Computed example of a mutant assay.
Amino acid sequence: MTAETQAPKVGLFATCLVDLFRPSVGFAAAKLLEEAGCEVHVPLAQTCCGQPAYNSGDRKDAKDLAKQAIELFEGFDYIVAPSGSCAAMLKMHYPELFQGDAEWEERCRRFSDKVYELVSFLTDIRGMSGVTARLSKTVTYHDSCSGLRELGISHQPRQLLSSIDGLKLEEMAGSDVCCGFGGTFCVKYPDISGKIVSKKTATITETGADMLLAGDMGCLMNMAGKLKREGSSIEVRHVAEVLAGMTDSRPIAGGK
């Protein structure tokens, strides 16, 4: 293999929620990256991206976590996360933490320039236009706030989903409306969060879909929990699991 055709080395930033609650998403992400011709590495020392601390105003701990991530991942050609919110933290907010820092500002910029959310990386960088998975179900897709508004992720998952044999995508009303999770928002304002997710699950149910998909575990767990409490049989999965053809595991938070 020549230098020109050598597989890019990708550091997979698995994210806390995937690691602790849904490892199958990490395996699905690795499978998709390998199918896109990448050499995948998963540094074992990785921890939180620092987003909870950052959103809570704890810049010191956020910077410490950012430095750890930069040191661990900066040697890869790309850093890819199966999460719009974590990818946005790495790409958009790390540079804010180190503005004016003579030692870290440029180092952080080089790191952040290599960060991508999984599905956008597959389509926009690796040129993937379809997958070989099959799924005979009707699905609906929720556009998570960070991925949509900070990284412009919208058409990319739909492009890949449209290539799945047997799958029908039924768009929900207000697919770009917040699910109410918002990281620490759902903890600080539970009543407001609860009302938001109630409206979201109503629009999900109205589609008649068998399955709900999204690209962020926080959003998925929030919506799955509400659907379960409502007695819904709608399956909830990360979009990477469907794209990779890895749907044998139990749905998130129950379901069918």
Rank of each mutant, 00 (worst) to 15 (best):
244 A>K: 02
231 G>M: 08
104 W>N: 02
83 S>N: 07
99 Q>W: 01
112 S>H: 07
222 N>S: 02
120 S>T: 06
136 S>I: 00
138 T>S: 14
177 V>Y: 10
68 Q>D: 12
178 C>L: 06
206 E>M: 06
61 D>L: 10
210 D>V: 03
179 C>G: 07
191 D>S: 15
67 K>Y: 01
59 R>C: 00
21 F>T: 10
175 S>P: 03
69 A>T: 14
69 A>N: 14
50 G>L: 05
163 S>V: 08
240 A>P: 13
210 D>W: 02
143 D>T: 06
145 C>G: 05
212 L>W: 03
247 T>I: 13
27 F>I: 09
221 M>H: 09
23 P>E: 10
232 S>I: 08
256 K>W: 03
129 S>D: 15
67 K>H: 03
186 C>Q: 11
197 V>N: 01
185 F>W: 08
25 V>I: 14
40 V>P: 14
66 A>F: 09
57 G>H: 05
100 G>P: 05
64 D>Y: 06
45 A>N: 12
92 M>V: 11
163 S>P: 08
131 V>Q: 12
244 A>H: 05
27 F>A: 13
152 G>R: 10
22 R>C: 12
71 E>K: 13
123 T>S: 11
120 S>Y: 02
252 I>G: 04
225 G>D: 04
102 A>T: 13
5 T>Y: 07
2 T>V: 07
6 Q>V: 10
119 V>D: 09
139 V>T: 12
187 V>F: 09
38 C>E: 04
43 P>R: 11
105 E>Q: 14
7 A>K: 15
107 R>T: 13
82 P>V: 03
215 G>K: 03
132 T>F: 00
68 Q>N: 05
134 R>D: 13
254 G>M: 11
70 I>R: 13
216 D>S: 09
39 E>A: 13
133 A>P: 03
133 A>I: 00
104 W>E: 08
53 A>C: 11
84 G>P: 06
145 C>A: 12
26 G>I: 09
125 I>K: 12
110 R>N: 11
58 D>Y: 15
80 V>M: 09
31 K>E: 06
249 S>N: 13
237 R>L: 06
255 G>Q: 08
224 A>M: 11
113 D>G: 05
60 K>E: 15
23 P>N: 05
58 D>R: 15
182 G>F: 03
4 E>V: 12
180 G>I: 01
145 C>L: 09
256 K>P: 13
256 K>G: 13
19 D>P: 04
67 K>V: 07
91 K>C: 04
137 K>P: 05
148 L>Y: 14
22 R>N: 11
207 T>E: 11
229 R>P: 00
3 A>W: 11
216 D>Q: 06
254 G>K: 12
13 F>N: 00
144 S>T: 14
33 L>H: 08
250 R>I: 07
107 R>S: 12
80 V>C: 04
90 L>I: 06
1 M>T: 10
118 L>G: 03
24 S>E: 12
131 V>I: 07
243 L>S: 02
239 V>N: 00
156 Q>P: 04
